[in-house]
């Protein structure tokens, strides 16, 4: 199993006391599988994404990626995991403002010590060929989103975590991007977990998890 979570709890200290955000979350995700994570605002989707990416650690429970328990890793170990195994697509892109599109696309792969491969070909598929020498500030939100997707795909991670990756795209382009991600994940033998509010997009993936008030309410085939 590529991703395995068991009995994950997470809470945060707030002014009104300790606030549980996730409770008893358990699920698996196999290689080649795609999964949509849905839920209301505040249901814990982002927190779960951050835990899966090793950006944060659970209070209880285990999260294993290819058999490695994230919580047992130190800072450097989790950084290594993010660099080499996990690929994150942020809702607000989080591109590197000081690098142009070409360097942003290849950045994660090179950071992981991998050959980014044919950057131009991917840029062509992403509709970014004419923008390779531009900087993020010179792109529209949709173009930046495509760069963020391309950056993750070129890094060839085993687990792709995407947070509303098509939120800034029109429907047709969004569908094309989802298709590209599914195709890439299948080719790489990786897995995709995507946070979305769109039931239409969720329906394009293999499975759907629904979070309600921090608990897994449904685990359904899409």
């Amino acid at each position: 199993m590529l991703l395995r979570t068991r009995d994950v709890d997470k809470s945060y200290e707030t002014a009104g006391g300790r606030q549980p955000v996730l409770s008893d979350v358990s699920f698996d995700l196999g290689a080649g599988e795609t999964l949509a994570l849905t839920g209301e605002s505040g249901s814990g989707k982002s927190t779960l994404m951050h835990l899966l990416a090793g950006l944060d650690t659970p209070d209880r429970g285990t999260i294993e990626i290819e058999g490695t328990d994230i919580a047992a890793q130190d800072d450097a170990g989790r950084a290594r995991l993010r660099r080499g195994t996990v690929g994150l697509i942020f809702q607000q892109f989080n591109l590197i403002p000081s690098l142009d599109v070409r360097d942003n696309l290849s950045f994660h792969a090179r950071l992981a010590g991998r050959d980014p491969g044919d950057v131009a070909a991917l840029a062509e598929r992403l509709g970014l060929s004419d923008h390779l020498r531009r900087y993020p500030e010179q792109l529209s939100g949709g173009q930046q989103q495509r760069v963020a997707i391309g950056r993750t795909l070129l890094a060839a991670p085993r687990l792709v975590l995407a947070d509303e990756p098509t939120g800034n795209l029109d429907e047709a382009t969004g569908d094309a991007m989802i298709a590209l991600m599914r195709e890439s994940v299948t080719q790489m033998g990786a897995a995709l977990l995507m946070v979305t509010h769109s039931t239409r997009l969720a329906a394009q993936l293999d499975r759907r998890l629904h979070l309600r008030a921090g608990r897994l309410a449904e685990d359904l085939p899409a």
């Binding site: 800072d75 450097a76 950084a79 660099r83 942020f90 994660h108 950071l111």
Partner: peptide, 16 residues
């Protein structure tokens, strides 16, 4: 911080 956090998220340690 918003410029540094993504690089950290992509796998660079805080020490780095």
């Amino acid at each position: 911080l918003p410029q540094v956090a993504p690089v950290w998220a992509l796998g660079l340690t805080r020490r780095g």
